[in-house]
Write a protein that binds this DNA or RNA. Structure first.
Lengths: 106, 106
DNA sequence: ATGAATGTTCAACGATTATTGAAGTATTGT
DNA sequence: ACAATACTTCAATAATCGTTGAACATTCAT
C-alpha cells in the first residue's frame, strides 16, 4: 500500500454520502447491489450517486460489473483490509521507519 | 465513533501533505514535534503547514500545546485506534447492522 | 524598550468538489 | 421498429480546498 493509494481511499471515505454507500455495500457483501437499489435505500438522486460511485471506483474501494442493463457494485473487502493494515503499521505506533518495538497501546 | 467524526478523520488523511505530517508525528510519538521541525523535515512553507495542522487539529488526529514561543504538535494515537476499530466493525465484514458471523477474511 | 524568532491569521487567487437537470448510451420488452 | 428502463456523462453553478505572500500576535534575548 503506497501513500498515494492510501490518500485516494481516505478521500473516497471523506464524504458522508460515500461512506454511507460503502457501508451499505459492505452490509450486502459479497453480492453487492445495483445502482438503483443503492439510490433507493440511501435516497440519493441517481446522477449524484453516479458521481460518488465513480470516486469510490477510482479509489478501488468498490468494483463494478454490468448485468444486462443493471450496473452492480460491490465493496472490495481486501482493499479495506489493506487500509486497516496500513493504518496499523504506519499511522499507529511509530514502527514504520524506526523499527521500534510496540510499546504504547498496541 | 460516529460516522460524522469518521468522515472528519478521513478528510484529514485525504491529503498527502497531511498524511505525511501525521505519519511524522506518529514516528515522533509521544513527544511530537514543534511546527518548525515539521516544516523543516517535510519542506513545507510554514503558512501552508499551519493550514493543514488546523485541519488535523479539527479532526482530533493531532493535539497542540504551547511551549514558550514554540507550538508542539502530537499525534493522537487513541483516536487512530478508534478509527481502526470503526473500519473493522463497520466497513469490513458486513457485521455492522445484520449481526452476521464473520466469515470472509476476518 | 528594541529587535529577532516562532508561528498563526488574513486576503486573494486558482483549482477542485458537490449538486442538479438535461442529454446520451445500452439493454429489455412488446 | 418503438418505447421504456437503468444508468451514465455533460454542462453549469455554488461551495470548498490548497497555496502563497503580507500582516499580525506572542515570546525571548540584549
Amino acid at each position: 500500500m503506497k501513500t498515494e493509494n492510501a490518500t485516494l481511499v481516505f478521500e473516497a471515505l471523506s464524504s458522508s454520502a460515500r461512506l454511507d454507500v460503502f457501508r451499505l455495500l459492505v452490509r450486502y457483501a459479497p453480492d453487492g447491489l445495483v445502482a438503483g437499489e443503492i439510490a433507493q435505500k440511501l435516497d440519493i438522486p441517481s446522477t449524484n450517486l453516479s458521481f460518488h460511485l465513480k470516486t469510490l471506483l477510482h479509489s478501488g474501494l468498490v468494483e463494478m460489473e454490468k448485468e444486462g442493463r443493471f450496473w452492480r457494485y460491490r465493496a472490495s473487502v481486501p482493499l479495506m483490509l489493506e487500509i486497516i493494515a496500513y493504518l496499523t503499521d504506519h499511522c499507529c505506533c511509530g514502527d514504520g521507519d524506526k523499527k521500534v518495538k510496540r510499546t504504547r497501546n498496541c
